[in-house]
Amino acid sequence: MNIEAIKSIYYFEMARMGRTLLQSVISPVITTSLYFIVFGTAIGSRINEVGGVSYGAFITPGLIMLTLLSQCISNGSIGIYFPKFTGTIYELLSAPVSMTEVVIGYVGAAATKGLLIGLIILATASFFVDLTIAHPFLMLMFMVLTAVTFSMFGFIIGIWADNFEQLNLVPMLVVPPLTFLGGSFYSIDMLPPFWAAVSHLNPVLYLVSGFRWSFYEVSDVNPLISLVMIAVCLAVCLGVLSWIFRTGYRLRK
């Protein structure tokens, strides 16, 4: 294991993020604050409690997940797409590093940044609503697993993408609908039975639901099933990555 290389990639990526810290932290914080003002305070005050939780508190886990997912996917994809785009990837390919080390470096950095932003949003939320976290350890575990899984997903997108349009396709077009329809802002109990059933096909539902359970012990699906679903997503990403490395897909001609 080339530990120095992993450290180099990780610090290099963290430094790159450090340069764009302001926009990468301030923009999600402002966006989330707006959600709280609009949904939590303005409209939320007219909405009944959901599952015994005030509406503002109810949407907090979903909002954190929304940001965590999109941040991790975009960080993970840009991290590897950028060297491909500028050509500096030659250095990674000609260095004595295995692809596993490359992934640990890039995905580790993307997940770290996603987690930091997630925690900052959690702190922001505590200014707007009364938060109770019933299972802090489980909450962190959900966050870490989600961050790693979706940073990996981002990494795969970064390898697949040939242009900036493809790079932004998933974070811009796929993630928001999945999160909005995944029970971030409502409990799927409120949906007609057919749409409630359809919602179960949405992986984000399981993430949000399990994550919310760690806060309030209320959930749409059993939190154990949520954990299993994250594990399945993680396994799928690992499988795709190992295929990419075996075949050199879009990396080695």
Binding site: E4, A5, S8, I9, T86, T88, Y90, A95
Partner: peptide
């Protein structure tokens, strides 16, 4: 390896990019 194209991390400093290369080779 010194590649043919001038491929560099435009936003990095000279020191950091050279140090990064050394680390990548496990040193």
């Amino acid at each position: 390896l010194v590649p043919q194209e001038l491929t560099t991390d435009q936003f990095e400093t000279v020191w950091n990019t050279v140090t990064f290369s050394r680390g990548l080779h496990g040193q």
